[in-house]
Amino acid sequence: MENDSSISHSKRRPVSVAALWLLPIGILLVEAALRLMPGGFLVRTLQLRMHEIVTLPAPKLQIMGDSVTEGIIAGNLAKALNLPVDQVGNYCLPGTSPMFAYFTLRRELAAGRVPGRILFAPHPANLEEPMVDRFMGRFATTTESLELLRHGVTLPVWLFGEACRDSVAMRNREEFRLAVTQGDFGFFTTLHKPAVSVLNSRIPVVQPLPGQPLAVNPADFPAQLSTPFSVDRVNAAYIDAFCDLAAAHGIRVTWVTVPVIDLYKERAMAAGGEAAYQAYLDGLVARHPNVSLLHRQLEVYPDTCFFDPWHLNHYGEDRFTAEVAAALKAAP
């Protein structure tokens, strides 16, 4: 049958069975060595912000979401709304999905801190991917991890997340991959970079100048920003849980739609994508009386407002914050 079996090569050294026993030892050694490496910038920022969220006094206006949400400068917003600067805090967690926001709020409430109002501004593209492996590998406690199974996370995805909790290589595979495939050692250079505190967002930014137009090659446009818009069911479940949790503590949630680059709208929001996004938001507001919408329409900012296809530059941030402030003032 097989012409490459051990039987047909009986004169050769047999295939090493002992290697199979040595492999787990090798894995343990590699993982132990990787554990000596300091935590990545993103992970340490997550940890610092989580520590601050449960220790600092809760602000009146709490901004939550992902890295794109950093575009709302808390200091500028406080100034525009005539609020003390410590009453507006941007508690967004970079590189996260809605389940992070739910568990952040839960931890905050458990620590006895109740924000007055939440501005929730995730990037629409981040509603498509629940990032379970990231959540489990970088954020969750054991109890929180187990809870995921009750909210529709499938067993294979959960087990993959568990592997990310246990293995440093699995947890940081995206960063290692960038280093190996693209020579991008940013992760390693930021190992000693100080984590960014939520307090940083409270420093007002003086009006910056518009940036250079962003050179986006359509062929290199991120795949995640090119797929037709949809809301992952796990994300949907956690957004509902987030809104319910806020409602149970009398917190109003205001959904803010972040500005996007034109190519994203063209690709992901074409062919009914934007209608689906708006229908989702309308459904959310209908289900949760404590939720309101600040921006329903998807707004496209010029390329001069972005420093990459996802994130606003300082000019874009300033413009977006001013728009949010104006909309908040106008809102009842």
Partner: peptide, 22 residues
């Protein structure tokens, strides 16, 4: 796979981490 146990194990380790990272 037919090399000394530690050589084969190193090869497996290399493949495993290549799969994880790349």
């Amino acid at each position: 796979a037919r090399q000394r146990a530690w050589v084969a194990a190193l090869f497996y380790l290399f493949l495993l981490y290549a799969i994880i990272i790349l």
